[in-house]
Design a protein around this nucleic acid. Structure first.
Lengths: 342, 342
DNA sequence: TTGTACGCGTTATCAC
DNA sequence: GTGATAACGCGTACAA
């Protein structure tokens, strides 16, 4: 059983392949109603399924979107372990599929670029999460397709950005501690890299401190990797060496959960002994014990928004360069991990 | 700046396109060493990137693998929220990319098939997770590509299967409770569907009961959806109506965590009041409080194995029909959620 | 080693 | 206004 081609359909309908192509692509202005009907029927009867490779070859449209997420350095596996990325993917995939697109999900090897993939596959667009080195973005600019950046402050006119106000998030969390009487507030965070989201959250943290007339204490910043394990370690360090700390702001929920576990391991009770605030509001944040106070961003919705913005850029190629970034809202969700100091 | 084609390379190298194709595809037996060198240089200098669409058109190989995971019914979003699927994806993606393949990740609309996608995209193979209705698999068989099923007992000679011994898993969990003196053991589970993994776990549960001379009590089976929320509900129901129950076997960690939360909501302490065992050993199982006793499967590795099996089927098209299923190992990880009744 | 037909759908051009 | 013909996109592989 060989493939049904457009030629088979045209023969069965007794018309040209051009007519078939027109009908099936909705350019019906150029075709008589009678022809339309016959083509439709023939395609139906033969169960015709077009070959996207051929289509892509003919008009450089693949209906394929590249989605890139960060990966672990050691195992080169996607950072999908962090529910934050899973949720973004959920939103993105749903919207793309709904619009007739498919998603190629992958990581990118350190030092490698994404231009090759984009050209090989004739990608119609891409959504890039995380932060990479300068050269990666330079490379990307050469790709002639719209690109949406998530979690990046590379405000280059070539890229669309769907972000949040990370600085505000950092500020809100810290402020909340301060409003509850805390003055020794630790920051547990992944690497603070230039133009990264974490840097902004860090700046918000410092702004809140300053505003309250509190000292910024570099020793109270614990900076390493965005993992549960590091959160745990940091907590142990805090208990052992910095007993003055009564509150911990973790720049991701994953780390916050590690912090809580680490505190527990050391016999501390949250929030009686130490208060904790996270960032992201991943699904399990409300599931853990006690439920985590955190900075909520509607992650799935952010994925949908990113996909929407990409799709509209694809459909309006003359829309010019990307306008200003889309900034998604942010709020503090007050659950049970912050204690009011009296 | 237009695309560099194989013709550009052939001109620069002063050879035919055929020669270029041969060299770049490693069929070097047919080409002189001198030509090889010149082609290599020309390709390098022009920074030639082949078009996979053209390649796919010419030889029906796309280097594209379809990966399907279940989705929520309401929002049609991927079930990636369940870390179990995230971990599988991590393993699959890593191995595929490493072998020069890309992954199209998607869900499938209820009632829709996957044959269309597979033909449109000229997929080289597919990995299907979850369980679907009969017609879905019938449809899939028409796709002339190797297919690996994960989490399915559709033992059809058309499909490769990478599974675990779910019945044993159910048995081990239940047996562990019994060995610790429990006799009223609830089962909290997703829908028990024919040929689904859950059915097997259910059978293992019953076998352990029977072996111990305990009654199987249909009222102690709580069957609904594989969600945290349902676990929570089930726990509340148990506390309210079935005080005799001292142990809960949840057929996924996600539900087990819901159960623990539900118990806590009702003022019960795990494991002092009620013991809990989960299934999967997702990453957060060891992170929660108390750390969850569960049936461990090495999920990432299972993803890698599935990808491996698919790739080798693709590379050995004459390997005949799939042999017997690959069964991955399984063990009970004893953490802190089971109490020994005296 | 090379020339070239082929895979399949699109679209510009031309004919009625 | 309708519809058909054919060139094109790019890489592959067979015949010569």
């Amino acid at each position: 059983m060989k493939r049904i081609t457009i030629r088979d359909v045209s023969e069965r309908a007794g018309v040209s392949t051009a007519a078939v192509s027109y009908v099936l692509n909705g350019r019906e202005g150029k075709v008589s109603p009678d022809t339309i009907l016959r083509v439709r029927r023939a395609a139906e009867e033969l169960n015709y399924i077009p070959d996207f490779s051929a289509r892509s070859l003919a008009n450089n449209k693949s209906k394929l979107i590249g989605v890139v997420i960060p990966q672990t350095e050691e195992h080169k596996q996607l950072l999908l372990q962090n529910p934050f990325y899973s949720e973004l993917i959920c939103g993105i995939e749903a919207r793309l599929r709904q619009s007739g697109y498919h998603m190629i999900l992958s990581g990118v090897e350190k030092g490698e670029g994404y231009l090759d993939t984009s050209m090989q596959r004739n990608l119609d667009g891409a959504i890039i999460m995380g932060i990479y080195q300068e050269s990666f973005y330079e490379d990307l600019k050469k790709a002639r397709m719209p690109i949406v950046l998530i979690d990046s402050y590379v405000y280059d006119s070539h890229f669309h950005v769907v972000g949040i106000d990370d600085e505000l998030g950092g500020y809100l969390a810290t402020k909340h501690f301060i409003d509850n009487g805390h003055t020794n507030i630790a920051l547990v965070t992944g690497m603070i890299r230039k133009d990264g989201v974490v840097e902004k959250r860090f700046l918000g943290y410092k702004r809140a401190l300053k505003e309250a007339g509190l000292f910024y204490h570099p020793d109270h910043v614990f900076e390493h990797s965005v993992t549960y394990e590091f959160g745990q370690e940091a907590a142990k360090l805090i208990v052992a060496k910095y007993p003055e700390i009564t509150a911990v702001f973790a720049t991701s929920d994953l780390m916050a959960m590690g912090v809580m576990q680490g505190l527990r391991d050391e016999g501390k009770v949250v929030p009686q002994d130490v208060s904790v605030i996270g960032f992201d509001d991943i699904t399990i944040a409300r599931m853990c014990t006690p439920p985590l106070t955190t900075i909520m961003q509607d992650t799935i919705n952010r994925g949908i928004t990113a996909a929407d913005r990409l799709l509209s850029a694809i459909h309006n190629p003359d829309g010019g360069l990307p306008q200003e970034p889309t900034i998604m809202p942010l709020t503090l969700v007050n659950r049970d991990t912050v204690r009011k100091l009296s």
